[in-house]
Amino acid sequence: MANTPSGATVDKVKQDYDEQASMYNVLLKWPFGQLESQLFASAVGSDDFCRGATVLDIGGGTGLRARQALEAGAARVDVVDFSDEMMAVGRRDAEALLGPEESAQRLRWFHGDATKPLFGTTTETERVEGLAGLSPPYDVVMANWIFDHVDKPEVLEALWRNIAAAVKPGGRFIGVRACDPRCEAMSSGNSTIPSTGDGRPAIHLENASLEVSYSGSTEMHERHGFTDVEIEPCEKQGVVRADPGFWQLWINKPGFVVVKARKR
């Protein structure tokens, strides 16, 4: 989740994530955090496409979704993020939950900025080195919330180039993205950000999103070689079925969605 445009915005968001890394996982306790976890588990568990897969999690933060991919049967997940503090939390959690040996075998952590080429590029005038140790092509590439810190088309293109370069033909993409930030569900009780107890939000992050991302357009997917774009239905998730009235605004116009696609 922690990748943003270059320059001052990158520095600010990186600072936000570093400072709030220890509190970040508290979001799981709140309704929209529970819904995200259930939607993501449903998505990575469908068709068994994660079973035995190699996975790249771009902007993987504390590894919440990486661990869900492992639970769905992935053989290994490589996490790339630019916040060392987020990844430090992820390493501790993974070792506690999986054990040190399994964690080391199945989760690898890479410090990197996904707005830069992750796998290196060569042109007539220059050569850009990628992150050493990454091993494309992957069976699955995940990119959760990273499009929601982007305010420049060229940065969005850079992210999608990395996604497309990471996944093999026939492989899968899965990602969480924000929808219209002005939708009513985002200001209702089912998306309230937890408080520290003194009136301040526990989590505060700089956000920006281009319409081509939050509108539901499949333009970027198709431009970068992905097809069969689908949204994981929220109505089927346990937290929604348990209290459909509470979630009606979200069902009508969700605050975020989990998107799946296939590489041509």
Score class of each variant (00 low, 15 high):
Gly60Gln: 05
Leu205Met: 15
Ile231Val: 15
Asn3Asp: 04
Arg106Val: 10
Asp198Ser: 06
Leu131His: 03
Val26His: 10
Ala261Gln: 05
Lys29Pro: 01
Asp18Glu: 05
Leu98Ser: 12
Lys253Ala: 15
Ala261Arg: 14
Glu232Tyr: 03
Leu70Phe: 00
Gln105Thr: 08
Arg241Cys: 07
Val128Met: 05
Lys116Asp: 02
Arg65Val: 07
Arg65Glu: 08
Thr9Val: 10
Asp81Thr: 04
Thr123Leu: 07
Ala185Phe: 00
Gly175Thr: 12
Ala104Phe: 07
Gly133Pro: 04
Glu230Met: 11
Gln20Ser: 06
Leu35Glu: 15
Leu64Tyr: 03
Asp18Lys: 02
Asn3Val: 09
Thr192Met: 09
Ser42Gly: 09
Thr227Cys: 09
Leu107Gly: 04
Met142Ala: 08
Gly61Ile: 01
Asp78Tyr: 03
Val89Asp: 01
Glu124Gly: 05
Gly189Ala: 14
Asp81Cys: 00
Glu157Ala: 11
Gly120Glu: 09
Gly199Asp: 14
His149Phe: 06
Asp81Lys: 01
Ile174Glu: 06
Ala88Ile: 04
Met1Glu: 01
Glu222Thr: 10
Pro194Ile: 08
Val239Asn: 10
Phe40Tyr: 15
Met142Gly: 01
Ser6Phe: 02
Ser83Ile: 01
Met87Ile: 05
Ile58Thr: 03
Ala158Met: 01
Arg65Trp: 10
Arg91Lys: 14
Arg65Lys: 15
Leu156Val: 04
Val79Asp: 05
His221Ile: 04
Ile251Pro: 05
Leu107Asn: 06
Phe110His: 08
Asp228Glu: 15
Ala185Tyr: 02
Arg172Glu: 06
Pro136Ser: 07
Ile163Ser: 02
Glu211Met: 04
Leu205Val: 10
Arg177Thr: 13
Ala208Thr: 04
Met1Phe: 15
Gly238Asn: 15
Trp160Tyr: 09
Ala143Asn: 03
Ala114Asp: 02
Val26Ile: 10
Phe256Cys: 10
Arg182Gln: 12
Pro194Glu: 13
Lys263Asp: 09
Trp145Glu: 08
Pro100Lys: 14
Leu56Ala: 01
Ala166Ile: 03
Asp228His: 13
Pro117Glu: 00
Asp228Asn: 11
Arg241Ser: 13
Ala66Gly: 08
Lys168Leu: 11
Leu27Tyr: 06
Asp78Glu: 02
Ala165Lys: 04
Pro181Val: 07
Val80Leu: 02
Lys253His: 06
Asn3Ser: 06
Phe119Asp: 02
Cys179Phe: 02
Gly199Gln: 12
Ser209Gly: 13
Asp81Gly: 00
Gly59Gln: 04
Gly45Cys: 12
Asn190Met: 08
Glu219Val: 03
Asp228Ala: 14
Ala143Ile: 04
Gly189Lys: 00
Gly63Ser: 13
Ser195Tyr: 09
Glu71Cys: 14
Gly120Leu: 06
Ser188Met: 10
Asp180Ile: 03
Phe226Leu: 11
Pro194Asp: 14
Ala132Gln: 13
Val79Leu: 11
Phe32Ile: 10
Arg172Gln: 14
Pro201Leu: 07
Gly73Phe: 13
Ala94Tyr: 11
Asn144Gln: 11
Pro169Leu: 13
Ala104Lys: 14
Trp30Met: 11
Ala72Ser: 14
